[in-house]
């Protein structure tokens, strides 16, 4: 009987020592920062690999082959890129993309800043106004672009109707039927849609600036413009740069708005790189050429992001 209990104790102590070893291994593993970091990063890395890296590598590979829909094709080196450079529609699409991104970003930044400064003041229904300002950003782009398309419709434009009945025009304005007008219309719609993002982010930045600084500047005799230029703008610059980086990326690779609003017309005058790459790669089935066209966006965006982030880093160091 006594011998039995001793054996049981021995058994229990052996089990607890094994469990202890196991627990300590697990604890050690969890306490190891490297292992924990790897475990926490793994889902993010997996998502990046599956949804970003894999499609990107595939696009790179496609761009070097003559792949067509339903035909794997063969390696053609840089032929697709050479064909794109030589393609006048692509040249126009590239210029359009730069124009569209440049002007839309300028307008979004200036109007967004203006709106943020206005919303930073105290007034009645401040919260309601701030929330409602986000509406253009919340509505799906396809829906809002359709609404704008109706407003710019060559025959039934409500804007033309109002201007005509208001006695301001005698003939319809060619909102979407003239290449230049159509491009400016696209810039306008993009600005309308993207401005709230600028305004709300800059507003958040404005609220981190201590009112004491403005008061001190005011006591020193600085006017509204000087207070903005010497106090607000330098302190807001890091946030502004980040917003501009995001906006440039989104605008340069824009697709939905142009696809719905103009379809790249009239006579290709509003085609962007993304819409033209889609037309060639997906609608015409020339997947290799489409991939090459879309990859032209990569070095441009990479350069923009690199320059801006480098500038930001230098400012932080200073």
């Amino acid at each position: 009987m006594g011998g039995g209990r001793a054996a049981q104790d021995l058994h229990l102590s052996a089990r607890s020592s094994t469990e202890g070893a196991r627990v300590s291994r697990l604890t050690r593993l969890l306490e190891s920062e490297k292992a924990l970091a790897a475990a926490l990063l793994a889902p993010g890395v997996a998502i990046l690999v599956v949804f970003i890296a894999y499609p990107f590598v595939m696009a790179l590979w496609y761009s070097l082959t003559s792949i067509r829909v339903g035909d794997a094709g063969h390696f053609v080196g840089l032929d697709n890129f050479a064909k794109a450079v030589d393609d006048t529609i692509f040249q126009q699409a590239f210029k359009n993309t730069v124009f569209y991104t440049f002007w839309a970003t300028i307008f979004k930044l200036s109007l967004g800043m203006w709106l943020a400064l206005l919303l930073n003041r105290h007034f009645r229904f401040k919260r309601v106004v701030r929330a409602s300002m986000l509406l253009p950003f919340i509505i799906p782009t396809v829906l809002s672009a359709f609404a704008w398309r109706w407003m710019f419709d060559p025959t039934f434009s409500v804007m033309n109707w109002m201007l005509y009945h208001g006695g301001m025009i005698t003939d319809r304005l060619p909102f979407l039927s003239s290449g230049d007008w159509a491009m400016w219309c696209a810039v306008l719609v993009n600005t309308w849609r993207g401005m709230p993002f600028f305004a709300i982010t800059l507003l958040a930045g404005l609220q981190t600036i201590s009112p004491d600084l403005h008061e001190a500047a005011a006591l020193d005799g600085a006017g509204a413009w000087h207070r903005f230029w010497h106090v607000t703008w330098p302190l807001l610059l890091p946030v502004t740069l980040v917003v501009v980086v995001f906006s440039v990326i989104q605008t340069f690779s824009d697709f939905q708005l142009i696809y719905v609003l103009t379809g790249g017309g009239p006579a290709n005058s509003t085609h962007l790189i993304a819409t033209y790459a889609y037309q060639i790669g997906v609608a015409s089935g020339l997947l290799g050429e489409g991939a090459a066209l879309s990859l032209f966006m990569f070095p441009v965006l990479f350069a923009v992001v690199w320059v801006q982030l480098r500038y930001l880093k230098r400012m932080e160091a200073a």
Binding site: D153, P154, T155, F156, P174, L176, S177, S178, A182, A267
Partner: peptide
């Protein structure tokens, strides 16, 4: 011609015709 045709898709002419434009 109606110059707006440069921006028309396949349904614009239907609407323009039916509305008497």
């Amino acid at each position: 011609h109606d110059e707006g045709g440069l921006a028309w898709d396949d349904s614009n002419n239907n609407r323009a015709f039916l509305s008497g434009d």
